[in-house]
């Protein structure tokens, strides 16, 4: 089973929910892997006190033009067809800007004379480890690299094929989040019940619906802000899997990178209910 935890707005508690759900399931005897897909600012490993046992450098294939083979101005297929504008024709040569390349491979495929050679661009690391008994994997984007999705794809590919995989998504609703949602069975949307939180929550709901994925919601810091998020959830007939109470003690535990399940045993019941509700939703073929 593959789950993804998303939030729209940053700082609503994706990682808190991902880590504690993983810990809860692991203690229940499930085989669980937490995949930290926030490759720009990974932090799930802090909460699990994880040590990395494997780190693999990741690269993508980018074009390098062999000028002796290139047909030049009479062709320019690579220049004209690249939708990412990574190649230009200047000074009677094809000039490549590898940092703009999305590594789609079209130029290699199109070139009629095989003048596009393969060069590589490092995108970052994929890491594997274990913490508090939970298997963890994640990515670390190379500093200066602008594109997270290729690395997120590698992180998710490196997760086990069996058991429960929990993907902790990056914030927002753009390409990195969509990449995290590829091939998931169920999406948990964590919301913060404030006007700003609700604004981004709605955008996230739209995204998940557009992708046709099953969706359940969690209200984090329930008790702060107002009741507009709950009204919206009810109005949209979205399943509300759990509410996590607004608590100073929880905030303090988070700031020390302590999992809530350990710092506040009363949260165990909430995660148990969340998991039961989620399973019921999935059995009902939730939408």
């Amino acid at each position: 089973m593959r789950l993804a935890i998303i939030s729209g707005k940053g700082g609503t508690g994706k990682t808190t929910v991902a880590v504690n759900l993983a810990l809860y399931l692991q203690k229940e005897g499930q085989k669980v892997c937490l995949a930290d897909c926030d490759v720009e600012e990974p932090n799930a490993h802090f909460f699990l006190d994880a040590a990395w046992s494997r780190e693999n450098r990741q690269t993508v294939a980018v074009p390098e033009i062999n000028n002796t083979k290139c047909l030049g101005e009479s062709c320019l297929q690579c220049v004209n067809e690249c939708r990412f504008n990574s190649l230009i024709w200047i000074a009677d040569k094809v000039m490549v800007f590898p940092e703009l390349c999305h590594a789609c491979g079209l130029c290699f495929f199109l070139c009629p004379v095989q003048a596009v050679d393969e060069s590589t661009r490092e995108i970052g690391l994929v890491r594997h480890g274990k913490g508090r008994g939970v298997e963890v994997c994640g990515g670390l984007l190379r500093i200066g690299e602008a594109m997270a999705p290729p690395l997120i794809r590698r992180v998710l590919k490196s997760t086990p094929g069996q058991g429960i995989v929990i993907a902790d998504a990056p914030p927002g609703t753009s390409c990195p989040v969509m990449e995290t949602l590829r091939d998931v069975d169920y999406v948990i949307l964590v919301g913060e019940p404030t006007p700003f939180g609700l604004h981004d929550f709605k955008i996230a709901v739209e995204l998940v619906r557009k992708l046709g994925l099953a969706l359940g919601t969690v209200i984090n810091r329930d008790g702060m802000g107002d009741d507009q998020m709950e009204k919206y959830i009810r109005h949209e007939r979205l399943p509300l899997l759990a509410r996590l109470p607004y608590s100073r003690k929880a905030a303090a535990a988070c700031s020390r990178a302590e999992p809530l399940l350990e710092a506040m045993p009363e949260f165990k019941e909430i995660y148990r209910n969340m998991w039961e509700n989620l399973q019921k939703e999935m059995q009902a073929g939730g939408k």
């Binding site: 990412f84 504008n85 024709w89 200047i90 703009l100």
Partner: peptide, 16 residues
């Protein structure tokens, strides 16, 4: 309106 690469495309246009 290009998502990226506007600067180098403009350079190409100027060169052309």
């Amino acid at each position: 309106n290009a998502a990226q690469g506007a600067g180098i495309q403009a350079a190409q246009a100027v060169s052309r």
